[in-house]
Design a protein around this nucleic acid. Structure first.
Length: 903
RNA sequence: GCGCGCUUAGCUCAGUUGGUUAGAGCAUACGGUUUACAUCCGUAGGGUCAGAGGUUCGAGUCCUCUAGCGCGCACCA
C-alpha cells in the first residue's frame, strides 16, 4: 500500500467505518470467551435536529473507553439509541406545521403523531450517519428508541408497579405551566434567571376605614384571582386592618385581610396579595386559611374570567379583559389603576424569572390535576424512599461520580427534591397507562391503572373506558434507559424478594460507565439511579463521568451563541478529519470543566494525526522484512526506545484506567513526536538493522493511539500488516490486543545514558543556534571526560550525526582549549573551537549561567543548612539535594575556569 | 440567600496522593530543501501559579479570608 505524503482523512474514513461495521466486531457477541464485561449506554441524542459538538465530545470520550476495553479483550457493549424527547420534538414539528399555516389541533392527534413519526424517522437517520462519521464503534444491532414496543412496555410496567406501590399518585397541585408548550413541566425543567423587573405597589381600599392598604406585586394581572391580602401579625402598620375587608379594585372584589408570619415585613410594602391559584406560596396560604382559589388564566396564558362571573363583583368593569394575553392585561390593568389613583409607585427590582428550559417562555404557576411520583414515601421492600435510594447509591459508592465535586451537588439536589410531576399535556410520548370508567357512559368514575386497556371496569363492569390523554415526562422513559434497552422487564424475574436477571440484562447490567454532560445530571443521571434502584435494586452504572460543555471562543454555549462562532462537526470533519476533531475534544480537557474550542485547535491536532501517518510511512519505506536482531545486537537507541515504549504503555494504560484521558493523550503525543519521531527515527536513518524494532514500536504506538484516533491508526495498521508476512496479525487494529508493558524492557541505566546523549546534542545545537551557525555547517567538537571516554567513543558516530559534527576528539586529560565555546553535560566537558565564535557573547552567556547556578547553589545550601529540613524531610529528598549541591559546585568551578580562558 | 467552579506564559488549557529550576499546544523571534512529514525540523524568549494570611522542613497543590468572572440550587410577593 502506497501512502500519500499528507494524510487526507476524507479519502479513507467512510470506507474504514463501513469495513468495521461489516466485520461485526462492534457486537460483543463476537467475543464469547471474554470474561470481563464493559458496557456503556449511549446517551440517546434527541430525535430532533443534527449532531453538534456536545455530541461529538461524548462520542469521542465514550468511543475512547469502548475501544480501549475492546482491545483489552473485554466483552464490550456500547448500546446506541435515540430519545423521542417529547416536548422538544413536539414543538419542533409544531413549528414545521406553523410554516404551513396549520396547528396540531386542526389536524388532530392521529395526523399530528403521524407527522412526528415521519419527522423522527428522517432525523434519526441523519443522526445515525453522523454518529458513524465520528467513528463510534457502537453495536447497531442493539439500537433502541424510547418509543420502541419493548421500551414502551417497560414504561407502562414501571408506571403500574410504582402506582401499585403507592409511589405514583394523582393530585390537584400548583404545577409549572408553560403557556407556549401548553404543558406542565417538572421542577428541573424550569430555569431560573435573574432579570430586571417592576414591582408594582397597588393600593387596595380597606372597607372599614376608607383608608388604603398597599400590596406589592410583580404580576398585577393575577390580582383578579386574589382572594385575600396578607400581612405579618406583628406588623404595627397593619395591625388594625387584620380581620377586615380589603377591596381588590379590579372589579371591586371584597377579600379578607389575614395575618401570617410567612409575610416578610421588609419586602415591598409588607402586605401581600394572596392568589392561591397562581402562586405556590399563596396556594399554601389558601389551604391554611380556607381561601377560594380563583383560576384566572387559560392554558395559553391569556386571562380567563369565567370563574369570576358569578361572584359578587362588578364583572362588567373587567369583562373586556377576558381572553387578553397576560402581558397585555398587565399593561391595561396598570393603566387603569393609574387612572384610579391606586398605583402608588413602580419600583425597579432584580428578581428571578422562571422560564421553560425548552422555549424560554415565562412559566406560570397553575393549579392543576396531575400525576406525581412520590419521592419521600417509604417503599416497604427497600425500607427507604426513592430519595433515600438515590442518596444511598452515591453515598455508598455503588456509583462513583467523576469529578467528585459533583457528588456534593448531587446530594444537595436529591435531598431537596420534591415530588416529580410526570404528566404532560402534549401528544407525543408514552400515553399514561391510566383508564377512567366514564360516568357519562354509565360507569362509576373509577380510575384504573393497567398495562393493557381493560375490557371492562373492574368495579362496575361497565365498558366505556377512556385512556388518560396525557403523556409521560420524557425523562421518565429516559430514566429506564440502562435496563429497558437490555430487555427489562422480560429479562428480570422476581424470586423470593430478589431479582433474577437473564440475557443481556444479566450480562451487561449494571453498566460500567455513564458518560454525559454535567448539565443533565439531574434530568437524566439522577432519574436513572432512581429507576434502576427501584426496579432492579441495583445501580444503573458503576461510574458517572461528567464532561464539560463545549463553548465557542467567546466562552458561550455553542447552542446559545451567534451563528458565526458555531463550529459544525461535519464541516470540520470534512476539513481536518474525524481523528483531529476527536483529539481536540479529548486533549487539554478535564472532566466537568467547559472547553473553549477553536478551529485552530482542531488544525493543530490534525498535524499530530498527520505526524502519525508520516511515522508509519517512514517506517514502512524501510521495508520490514529484516532479520530480527539478537538481544545483544540492540543498540543504545534501540534499548532506549523499547524502554520508553514500555514506560509509555504503562503510563497511558494507567491514565485511561483512571479516566485521565487528556493526560494519556499528552504522554502519548510526547512519546510519539518528541521521542520516537525526533530521536529514534532520526537515528534509524544512520543505524541499520532496525526493522524489527521499528515494526514492533509502530504496532504498539498505533495500538495506543487507536482509541483516540481510530481512523488513521486503522489505515496505518492495515498498511503495516501488508508489508509484513506475519501470520498472527489481527483482522483490524480495532480488535488488536492492547499493548503490554514489558517490565524487563524498562532500563533506567539505558535511559540515563541516552539522556546524556540527548543533553550533549541539545547543548551543542543550542550553542550553534546562539552563534548562528547554520545547521548545514559541520563543526568540530572536543570532549573532555576523565571517566566516560569509552561511552563517548561508543557513541561518536551518533553524536556526529545528531549534532552535525565533522570531527570529534575525545580526551581524558590534558589542557583545555582556549577561545572555545564551553559546555558541560554531567561530567563531560564540551569545547567547540570555532573561528566564528563571538567571544564577548560567549562570555556573557557563561556569566549568566554562572550567576544562575550560584543563586541556585545558595538556596540549596541554605535548605541543607536548616536542621529542621534535614531532620524532617525524607532521606531520598535530602540525598537528592546533596547531590545537586555537588553538581552545582563542580559546574561553577568549571565555568569560572572557562571564563578565565576566554581572556 | 445557600452551594460549586474558575483565576497558572500573549491565547487555550494541563498539572493523581504536597517534594528537581511549574508544563503542553497555539502564537512570537531567529536559523533551516538533513534519504517520513513545511500539516516539517532545530533553537530561543515569555510565568511574583488572582491577592493576603495560615499549616508544613517544603505549597500551584492543603486550610481561612478577600476580589473578579462563571454556574447550579432556592417559594420573598
Amino acid at each position: 500500500m502506497k501512502l500519500k505524503a499528507t494524510y487526507t482523512a476524507s479519502d479513507y474514513e467512510n470506507n474504514v467505518y463501513a469495513q468495521w461495521e461489516e466485520s461485526g466486531y462492534f457486537n460483543p457477541d463476537k467475543f464469547p470467551k471474554s470474561k470481563r464485561v464493559f458496557t456503556i449506554s449511549m446517551p440517546p441524542p434527541n430525535a430532533t435536529g443534527t449532531l453538534h459538538l456536545g455530541h461529538a465530545m461524548f462520542l469521542a470520550l465514550q468511543d475512547l473507553m469502548i475501544r480501549y476495553h475492546r482491545m483489552k479483550g473485554d466483552k464490550t457493549l456500547w448500546l446506541p439509541g435515540t430519545d423521542h424527547a417529547a416536548i422538544a420534538t413536539h414543538s419542533k414539528v409544531e413549528q414545521l406545521l406553523a410554516q404551513e399555516g396549520k396547528t396540531r389541533q386542526e389536524i388532530g392527534r392521529e395526523a399530528f403523531l403521524q407527522r412526528i413519526h415521519e419527522y423522527v424517522e428522517h432525523s434519526r437517520n441523519t443522526i445515525r450517519n453522523q454518529i458513524r462519521k465520528m467513528g463510534a464503534s457502537c453495536d447497531w444491532s442493539r439500537e433502541r428508541y424510547t418509543l420502541d414496543d419493548g421500551l414502551s412496555m417497560a414504561v407502562s410496567e414501571m408506571f403500574v408497579r410504582m402506582f401499585n406501590d403507592g409511589l405514583i399518585y394523582r393530585a390537584q397541585k400548583i404545577v409549572n405551566w408553560c403557556p407556549h408548550c401548553l404543558s406542565t413541566l417538572s421542577d428541573v425543567e424550569v430555569e431560573h434567571s435573574q432579570e430586571k423587573g417592576s414591582l408594582f405597589y397597588i393600593k387596595y381600599p380597606v372597607k372599614e376605614t376608607g383608608e388604603y392598604i398597599t400590596v406589592a406585586t410583580t404580576r398585577p394581572e393575577t390580582m383578579l384571582g386574589d382572594t385575600a391580602v396578607a400581612v405579618h401579625p406583628a406588623d404595627e402598620r397593619y395591625k388594625k386592618c387584620i380581620g377586615g375587608i380589603a377591596v381588590q379594585p379590579m372589579g371591586n372584589h371584597e377579600i379578607p385581610i389575614i395575618a401570617d408570619e410567612y409575610v416578610e415585613r421588609e419586602f415591598g410594602s409588607g402586605a401581600l396579595k394572596v392568589t392561591p391559584a397562581h402562586d405556590v406560596n399563596d396556594f399554601e396560604l389558601g389551604r391554611k386559611y380556607h381561601l377560594t382559589s380563583l383560576n384566572i388564566l387559560r392554558e395559553n396564558g391569556s386571562l380567563d374570567l369565567s370563574s369570576l362571573k358569578n361572584r359578587p363583583i362588578d364583572f362588567e368593569s373587567i369583562a373586556d379583559l377576558d381572553g387578553m394575553d397576560r402581558y397585555k392585561a398587565r399593561e391595561v390593568i396598570v393603566e387603569r389603576l393609574k387612572e384610579k389613583g391606586l398605583l402608588e409607585k413602580i419600583e425597579e427590582i432584580d428578581h428571578t424569572l422562571a422560564t421553560c428550559y425548552r422555549c424560554d417562555t415565562v412559566i406560570e404557576p397553575y393549579i392543576s390535576l396531575q400525576w406525581f411520583v412520590a419521592v419521600d414515601k417509604k417503599i416497604e421492600k427497600y425500607g427507604a424512599s426513592l430519595k433515600g435510594l438515590m442518596h444511598d447509591t452515591v453515598l455508598s459508592k455503588k456509583t462513583q461520580i467523576i469529578p467528585q465535586r459533583f457528588e456534593k451537588i448531587y446530594f444537595q439536589w436529591v435531598d431537596n427534591l420534591r415530588d416529580w410531576c410526570i404528566s404532560r399535556q402534549i401528544w407525543f410520548g408514552h400515553q399514561l397507562p391510566v383508564y377512567y370508567c366514564l360516568e357519562s357512559g354509565g360507569g362509576c368514575g373509577e380510575t384504573i391503572v393497567s398495562k393493557e386497556k381493560p375490557k371492562v371496569c373492574n368495579i362496575c363492569k361497565k365498558s366505556v373506558l377512556r385512556q388518560d390523554e396525557d403523556t409521560l415526562d420524557t425523562w421518565f422513559s429516559s430514566g429506564l434507559w440502562t435496563f429497558s434497552t437490555l430487555g427489562w422487564p422480560r429479562n428480570a424475574k422476581e424470586k423470593r424478594g430478589s431479582i433474577e436477571k437473564k440475557g443481556d440484562l444479566a450480562q451487561f447490567h449494571p453498566t460500567s460507565v455513564l458518560e454525559t454532560g454535567y448539565d443533565i445530571l439531574f434530568f437524566w443521571v439522577a432519574r436513572m439511579i432512581l429507576m434502576s434502584r427501584y426496579a432492579l435494586g441495583e445501580q444503573p452504572f458503576d461510574v458517572v463521568y461528567l464532561n464539560g460543555l463545549v463553548l465557542d471562543i467567546h466562552g458561550k454555549k455553542m447552542s446559545k451563541s451567534r451563528e458565526e462562532s458555531i463550529i459544525d462537526p461535519l464541516t470540520v470533519i470534512e476539513k481536518y478529519g474525524t481523528d483531529a476533531l476527536r483529539l481536540s475534544l479529548l486533549v487539554g480537557i478535564s472532566p466537568g470543566n467547559d472547553l473553549r474550542l477553536s478551529e485552530e485547535k482542531i488544525a493543530s491536532y490534525r498535524n499530530v494525526v498527520n505526524k502519525l501517518w508520516n511515522i508509519t510511512r517512514f517506517i514502512l519505506e524501510f521495508g520490514l522484512e529484516g532479520e530480527a536482531p539478537r538481544k545483544h545486537q540492540l543498540t543504545l537507541a534501540d534499548q532506549w526506545i523499547l524502554s520508553r515504549l514500555s514506560q509509555t504503555i504503562a503510563s497511558v494504560t494507567n491514565h485511561i484506567e483512571g479516566f485521565r484521558f487528556s493526560q494519556a493523550a499528552e504522554e502519548l503525543r510526547a512519546f510519539t513526536c518528541d521521542e520516537l519521531a525526533d530521536w529514534y527515527l532520526e537515528i534509524a536513518k544512520i543505524e541499520k538493522g532496525k526493522q524489527m524494532v521499528l515494526a514492533h514500536v509502530l504496532e504498539a504506538v498505533l495500538s495506543l493511539w487507536h482509541p483516540f484516533t481510530p481512523f488513521v491508526t486503522e489505515i496505518a495498521y492495515q498498511a503495516l500488516k501488508k508489508s509484513r508476512t506475519e501470520k498472527k496479525a489481527s483482522p483490524f487494529l480495532m480488535v488488536h490486543a492492547w499493548p503490554h508493558a514489558d517490565e524487563k524492557e524498562i532500563k533506567e541505566e539505558v535511559e540515563n545514558e541516552f539522556a546524556t546523549i540527548q543533553h550533549i546534542v541539545g547543548a551543542i545545537r543550542s550553542a550553534r543556534s546562539e552563534n548562528t551557525i547554520s545547521p548545514k555547517q559541520k563543526i568540530q567538537a572536543i570532549f573532555f571526560t576523565p571517566t566516560r571516554a569509552d561511552f563517548m567513543k561508543a557513541h561518536e558516530e551518533l553524536l556526529k550525526y545528531l549534532a552535525r559534527l565533522d570531527f570529534v576528539t575525545i580526551v581524558e586529560k590534558g589542557e583545555r582549549p582556549a577561545n572555545a565555546i564551553y559546555l558541560k553535560v554531567e561530567d563531560i566537558e564540551i569545547y567547540l573551537p570555532l573561528g566564528l565564535m563571538k567571544i564577548e557573547e560567549e562570555r556573557d552567556r557563561l556569566s549568566t549561567e554562572l550567576q544562575k547556578k550560584q543563586e541556585l547553589l545558595v538556596s540549596l545550601q541554605g535548605r541543607l543548612a536548616d536542621s529542621t529540613f534535614t531532620s524532617k524531610a525524607p532521606k531520598h529528598i535530602i540525598e537528592r539535594e546533596q547531590k545537586k549541591v555537588k553538581d552545582y559546585e563542580h559546574s561553577i568551578q568549571k565555568i569560572k575556569e572557562q571564563l578565565a580562558l576566554l581572556k
